[in-house]
């Protein structure tokens, strides 16, 4: 996670209107979303800077119209940005010509869509093999690889079905399989589970985590569901009116919401289920006795926290190093919902 970021965006702007470039060039500092709107432009993405590290899963969370989908489309240059820079693997994607752009998408990127975006006239197999076909792979290879991914997403035996013959969950599996067919490094998922029933959604999230554990891609995941974001994310970027309100790990967002807007989301959350011992561990706090693993949530530690009588508990990281002490009182406050 420490290498150069895979995606790095700096001061990215995406304005919609008659002459966005001209407007942005002349726009004074500090115009708010509504000021811009009053000038006849919509700020889809407003001065966003964010980086995604290799193997990291960044979840972009926001309500509809917050600009999250626009932002992810800027990363893959489905949208041309109005200002700022976006680099993918150190390459400024705005500098690519059409051929290079296509090449980048063919080799590096996969994307999953909210309403699946499947081609209705193609079978499951043909849909999944579509990106391979587009880059000119021969039929035999295509089929082999597609069957591989079909197995991966658990659709074996449905190769010859048409999308309309599948349930929503199955269709999204096809969408996922298609996006994985070319073995992309970067995986964009635009609200992939929003169109599904709650039960299926849960199942798909588990499935997704299983896949990610296996594949370890660099992921940008979009959702409007804060719970989903907490469940999946390494880091969450919360967006409102085109701008990022806060970008941090779930624990930190829950503990320290940066703005009242973010706080509104965290209020209802059972923090004990989100916050990990590692986050609360303070190096300056000395503690003795049996350590607790950094990756457990406070909720998971509930019984111990109540029963233990130590002031502070040592926290140990995955590789067995003590990283600090956990203030039991503080943890209990979180558990009881007082914090």
């Amino acid at each position: 996670m420490s290498d150069a970021p895979v995606i790095s965006a700096h001061n990215v702007w995406k304005l919609f209107g008659t002459d966005p470039e001209g407007y942005l060039a002349k726009m004074p500092q500090g115009r708010s979303y509504s000021d811009i709107q009053a000038d006849g432009y919509i700020a889809g993405v407003k001065d966003v800077s964010v980086e995604v590290a290799k193997g990291e899963m960044l979840v972009i969370m926001g309500l509809s119209g917050s600009g999250k989908s626009t932002l992810v489309r800027c990363f893959s240059r489905l949208h041309e940005i109005t200002g700022g820079t976006i680099e993918v693997d150190g390459q400024d994607i705005m500098a690519l010509n059409e051929k290079q752009l296509i090449e980048m998408r063919r080799s590096k990127m996969g994307m999953v869509f909210q309403s699946f975006g499947l081609l209705p006239h193609r079978t499951v197999l043909e849909n999944i093999a579509f990106p391979l076909e587009m880059r000119g792979q021969d039929k035999h290879d295509r089929r082999e690889r597609a069957l591989e991914v079909i197995k991966l997403v658990g659709l074996d035996g449905r190769e010859d079905y048409f999308p309309r013959e599948l349930s929503g969950g199955q269709q999204q599996r096809v969408g996922i399989a298609r996006s994985l067919a070319i073995e992309p490094d970067i995986w964009f998922l635009d609200e992939p589970f929003s169109a599904l029933d709650p039960l299926i959604r849960r199942e798909m999230q588990d499935e997704f985590l299983r896949l990610q554990a296996m594949l370890n891609k660099t992921i940008v995941f979009i959702t409007h569901d804060f719970d989903e974001a907490l469940r999946l994310a390494d880091r969450i970027a919360i967006m409102k009116d085109g701008a990022v309100e806060q970008c941090d790990t779930p624990d930190k967002i829950v503990l320290n919401p940066a703005t009242p807007y973010v706080a509104k989301f965290t209020e209802e959350i059972d923090k004990a289920r989100v916050v990990h011992a590692g986050t609360l561990a303070r190096p300056d706090l000395a503690a003795n006795g049996d350590p607790i693993p950094a990756g457990t949530t406070i909720h998971e530690l509930a019984r111990q926290l109540v029963d233990d009588d130590r002031e502070a508990l040592p926290v140990v990281s995955k590789d067995g190093v003590i990283i600090g002490g956990l203030d039991r009182r503080q943890a209990l406050d979180i558990l009881l919902g007082a914090a």
Partner: peptide, 29 residues
């Protein structure tokens, strides 16, 4: 044609001609 299908086509690395031939026309069938 649904914008998602179009984007799916683009993300699959379609050239303009491939877009028309494999994505737009079949979807507007």
């Amino acid at each position: 044609v649904s914008p998602e299908v179009v984007e799916a086509g683009k993300m699959s690395g379609c050239t303009r001609w491939q877009m028309l031939r494999h994505v737009y026309i079949p979807s507007a069938r």
